[in-house]
Amino acid sequence: MAKHRVAKVSEITPGTTRRVVIDSCEVLLCNVGGAFYAIEDVCTHDGGPLDQGTLEGECVVCPRHGATFDVRTGDALTLPAVIPLMTFPVTVHDDDIFVEV
């Protein structure tokens, strides 16, 4: 597991997300009320990206079929998704956000 600096804290405001690609791994960085979480940016239902979806509280909603995931745990909360998302550890140093993949 290597730590990668992916963004600055000031770049991702609370309630928003950013897609980053680390070593061909697609990651969605989510700011939930100031806390950062990283999940894979691939819906486990249809394999498409989640970054065009919406972040509602701690849940990300897939833009295509409405599957909802908890960004803190990766759990699939509604159908049609049934498999949880992978999550990645996030650390913040000063203004920098690091993700381990």
Binding site: C62, P63, R64, H65, G66, A67, T68, L77, T78, L79
Partner: peptide
Amino acid sequence: FATVIPPGDN
């Protein structure tokens, strides 16, 4: 409610 069929399903 809507956990089986979310509004965004179709």
